[in-house]
Design a protein around this nucleic acid. Structure first.
Length: 295
DNA sequence: ATGACTACCAGAT
DNA sequence: ATCTGGTAGTCAT
């Protein structure tokens, strides 16, 4: 069924990159609501209020993938294939310890977990610097400590307060202050694949319960372009029946995108949920497919 | 009590 | 043959 979208006129700032994702997001919503009847580029463009060629260009520049390609990349069948491919990969793939650097997540991440004591302190004695940055998926709220990246959240322009509250609530005892200068390099490093290099691994600090950390650790092992079922993660961490609890832990991941919680899907390949909005999950998955295709 | 889960069964298409 | 919806196990918060 087609939603009668108002002929919303975009008044200002159409060229700003932040608004680019706005357009893309609407198109993605459109696609995911109507993907069953294979909307044509013309229809999508009409709904978005722009010319087919303009949309084609914008979308492709954004995702590295045409709207059509994106449509396919986010399909159930596709997700199933990602799942089916090689499941043993979780067991074998990378050698990872809690401390040693390793090749994880094409982004190249070094991660360490905070001690249980530090976790219980709920951030006490920790300084968190934060900043908002435009990224391919809207606004990114980046939070860092002197030990590395501790938080990454998404939001749309206008809802910065909520995102910040959400994040700060996770470490209520920390000293939070804004410092875009400190966070900007992280944003640049994270969202531009050109900067994903092993010689400067991204330092990440995982702050959570033991169970959560083990789940996030498992997520870190999923390479780009692959997906894993919650139940697979459950088996991987040695609690085959805890898939539901795994879902909760995945959902609690404070470092979204970097810890690729978007690559966790239902056993059927269905995208079951995302703390920062299902549309965003689709966007990230589609964008990743585009990065792979362009590589 | 509550889920970003699953396996399973009954109807419906 | 498939899809949909409800149900009953499960387990860390």
């Amino acid at each position: 069924m087609t939603i009668a979208t108002q002929p919303h006129t975009i008044l200002l700032d159409e060229a700003k990159p932040g608004h680019e994702y706005d357009v893309v997001r609407r198109v993605i919503e459109d696609i995911s609501e109507n993907y069953r009847d294979q909307p044509s580029l013309e229809e999508l463009a009409a709904n978005a209020g722009m010319s087919p060629t303009a949309l084609q260009k914008l979308f492709t520049r954004w995702a590295g993938l045409s709207p059509k390609g994106f449509l396919q990349a986010v399909t159930l069948d596709h997700a199933r294939r990602l799942l089916a491919s090689d499941l043993p990969l979780l067991e074998t793939a990378y050698e990872v310890g809690y401390s040693g650097p390793g090749r994880l997540h094409d982004l190249f991440v070094t991660h360490e977990a905070m001690s249980p004591g530090e976790f219980k302190a709920r951030g006490g004695g920790l300084s968190m610097r934060y900043g908002f940055h435009i990224c391919p998926f809207g606004l990114a709220l980046v939070m860092v400590t002197d030990r590395g990246l501790a938080g990454l959240a998404f939001c749309d322009p206008g809802s910065e307060r909520e995102a910040l509250a959400d994040m700060q609530g996770r470490w209520p005892n920390a000293h939070h202050f804004e410092d875009m200068g400190a966070t900007a390099p992280y944003a640049a490093r994270i969202f531009d694949p050109a900067n994903w290099r092993s010689d400067q691994p991204l330092r990440v600090v995982l702050i959570g319960t033991d169970f959560q950390v083990s789940v996030w650790n498992a997520l870190l092992k999923i390479p780009m372009g692959k997906a894993v079922a919650y139940s697979d993660i459950a088996s991987d961490i040695g609690r085959p029946k805890a898939s539901r609890a795994v879902g909760a832990a995945v959902g609690a991941n404070p470092v979204s995108f970097v810890v690729p919680c978007h690559r966790a899907v239902g056993k059927s390949g269905a995208l079951t949920g995302y703390h920062w909005g299902l549309t965003r999950k689709r966007a990230i998955l589609g964008w990743e497919a585009g990065q792979l295709a362009t590589r």
